[in-house]
Computed example of a mutant assay.
Amino acid sequence: MPSPELELEIKQLIISALSLEDIQPDDIDADEALFGAGLGLDSIDALELGVALQKKYRVGMSADSDETRRHFSSVRSLAAFVENGMAAASQA
């Protein structure tokens, strides 16, 4: 399970990258869906968030991959993806 600190960072990144002015990190449940019924993000938001994640954490992802879609399902899954990506990069 990813660290609460990383989950908070990702919540803050979502808010800043997508200019969600009326939302605070505490308003986002780590297990809540980011797209559709949950936070209500769309495909443009996914693209902007992907770019922000790549810049901040230097993680690579394929825009058209089912695996990437799974990573973007919630804050917790994104945090786990980033954590795994950073661990792999530090071992390389």
Rank of each mutant, 00 (worst) to 15 (best):
I10Q: 06
R70W: 05
T68A: 14
L47R: 06
H71E: 10
P2L: 03
A46L: 13
E5K: 14
Q54I: 06
T68Y: 08
K11T: 01
A92F: 03
D42E: 07
E83D: 15
Q24W: 06
I10Y: 02
L53G: 01
I14N: 00
F81D: 06
S3Q: 09
I44N: 01
M61E: 10
S16D: 12
S90F: 04
I28S: 00
G85D: 02
D29A: 05
I23R: 00
F81W: 08
G85T: 08
F72P: 14
G85L: 02
L34K: 01
A89C: 06
S62T: 10
D29P: 00
A88Y: 01
A37I: 08
I44E: 01
D22N: 10
L78W: 05
S43T: 08
Q91M: 09
R58D: 15
Y57F: 15
L34T: 04
A46E: 12
D26N: 13
M86A: 11
S62I: 11
S16Y: 06
V82N: 05
P2E: 06
Q91R: 10
Y57T: 12
L34F: 01
G85M: 03
G85K: 03
D31R: 10
G50A: 07
G50L: 07
A80E: 08
E67A: 10
E5F: 13
D31M: 08
A17N: 03
G50Q: 03
G40C: 01
L13H: 10
A79D: 01
P4Y: 09
L47I: 15
S77Y: 09
A88M: 05
S90M: 11
I23C: 00
A80Q: 09
E5D: 14
S65P: 03
L78P: 01
A37P: 00
L49D: 01
Q91I: 06
T68P: 04
L47V: 15
I10P: 00
L13G: 11
V59Q: 04
Q24A: 15
V59L: 04
S3R: 03
L41A: 10
N84T: 12
D22Y: 05
G40P: 00
P2K: 05
L13N: 11
A33F: 03
A88H: 04
G36K: 03
A30F: 03
E32D: 02
S62F: 08
A80G: 06
A52W: 01
V82P: 07
L13T: 13
H71N: 14
T68D: 08
E21V: 12
I23T: 09
D31K: 07
L49C: 12
F81P: 02
F35R: 05
A89W: 00
S19D: 07
A33E: 13
A79W: 02
E67M: 04
R69E: 09
E83S: 15
L8R: 09
V75P: 12
L41T: 04
E32C: 02
G36Y: 04
M61D: 08
L20P: 10
R69W: 05
Q91N: 05
I44G: 02
E48L: 07
I44M: 08
L34D: 03
D64V: 15
D26E: 15
S73P: 00
M86N: 12
K56I: 03
F35V: 10
L39S: 00
H71L: 06
E21H: 14
E83K: 11
P4I: 11
E9Q: 12
K55C: 09
K55T: 10
L47H: 09
L6W: 09
A92P: 01
H71C: 15
A63H: 11
A37G: 04
H71K: 11
